[in-house]
Design a protein around this nucleic acid. Structure first.
Lengths: 223, 223
DNA sequence: CGGTTGTTTGAACTGATTCAATCTGTGTGG
DNA sequence: CCACACAGATTGAATCAGTTCAAACAACCG
């Protein structure tokens, strides 16, 4: 994919994709659905800026966010229309490439393939952790866990100024499988426990160690 | 991987793996843990017979089964020790191959790679569906959904003699994130609704259509 | 300014858990 | 063949975590 001298050495993984894959840039406003469940997904998507959520819905209209793609991460094309749709959880700038171009690029470059395998692996690990979270932890631990994961994935400062949460409380509810009302209670509880301090969506971690413990958070699964 | 004339044409996908990948055969008794969480996973595993569960545990010892691998399916090797362990949910016969041999085989054959990508895709779809299930459906729908999924994945007869469930009620609880006691209630409820009939672990589907509806089951995600 | 999205709070309700006990089937060793 | 152990299934009663419904409030944006 990249010849030894044709590419700057400290280009990040993501830039490596962007550099090699032809595609169009699409901007999506927050809360907009970029793709509905069961629509064909014959395009590869790279999130250049923003945050994309993969969501499923049940018959009653309940929404469950099943995966998050932060800036620099990707959504694979799939052979069959997937059961999940895509929402922009923040203003997004996407690089959208055709499946053909993507496959071609994949066939051309072994490092590119390696990279995507590693990433698929990581997404799977996170799914498993979320299943554990939603299946076997109470709501306060679930929210605490999401805070920890978000801090690590966005590389937030765990001691100083903290984390700017990219989620509304409703979105936290959609991720952790509960109601927005309860998320509000739980955030207050975390604050009452002196584990975090809140100002709007900004979260300051008052006791990162203790919060991880309550959440059962072990960053290993993020590699 | 296979030359046009060196391989019988109706060999299944799985046989294709088995045929090409050197490895040792391991037998695992039911309920035995084949690998604990956070142990290195430097081997590729093919389930030749039986049923393997990938599970995670929380601090309190609660177990969550996060994925199932039926006969013919595989567990990938991973670069880092994964947070999940492996349990045999039925007597298992596994083909265990070294990561080196696996990678070599992968590099050699493009169809093999395609196959594994398709499978990884499917595993991801199932994880997403499980997240929706555990996050946004009540316990009766969750169990109904698992019954439907199991019937389709094991290719059970949906009208006639039905399905032999490979799970104890505790295992169903570990998959659907509830207690074994409640699973028992729920199975009785499904029977009272005349959706299924039970004799031990054998499930007869009295109204497959209606059961799918209650479960919110759409087989699409299984391809 | 008015409309929309998001946050907060209270009170009533309920689905599911917890704890505890009993019962069934199955395999094992004496 | 019986006795025993063990995994699994079943049932009941008390409790509680989290939902639901409803309403008010704050913040944001064009």
């Amino acid at each position: 994919m990249y010849g030894p001298s044709t590419m700057p050495s400290l280009l990040s993984e993501t830039a490596m994709i962007e550099y090699n894959l032809p595609g169009r840039i699409v901007r999506v406003a927050p809360r907009r659905h970029f793709r509905e469940p069961f629509e064909p997904a014959d395009e590869f998507i790279l999130v250049r800026q923003g945050l994309l959520g993969l969501y499923c819905t049940n018959e009653a209209g309940g929404k469950q966010i099943v995966s998050l793609r932060y800036s620099g991460e990707e959504v694979m094309a799939s052979e069959f229309p997937p059961a999940y749709g895509l929402v922009a959880l923040a203003p997004c700038e996407l690089l959208v490439a055709s499946k053909g171009d993507f496959e071609e690029c994949l066939g051309r470059s072994s490092p590119f393939l390696q990279l995507l395998r590693r990433r698929a692996d990581r997404h799977a690990s996170i799914s498993y952790e979320w299943l554990l979270n939603n299946g076997r932890r109470d709501t306060i631990s679930r929210v605490a866990h999401l805070l920890c994961e978000t801090a690590v994935r966005t590389d937030a400062d765990k001691a100083g100024y903290g984390l700017w949460l990219p989620f509304s409380q409703q979105t936290i509810a959609d991720i952790t499988g509960q109601t927005a009302v309860n998320v509000n209670y739980v955030l207050n509880r975390l604050e009452a426990l002196s584990l975090i301090k809140r100002e709007g969506r900004r979260i300051e971690f008052l006791n990162w160690r203790e919060l991880q413990c309550l959440a059962g958070f072990r960053p290993d699964y993020l590699q």
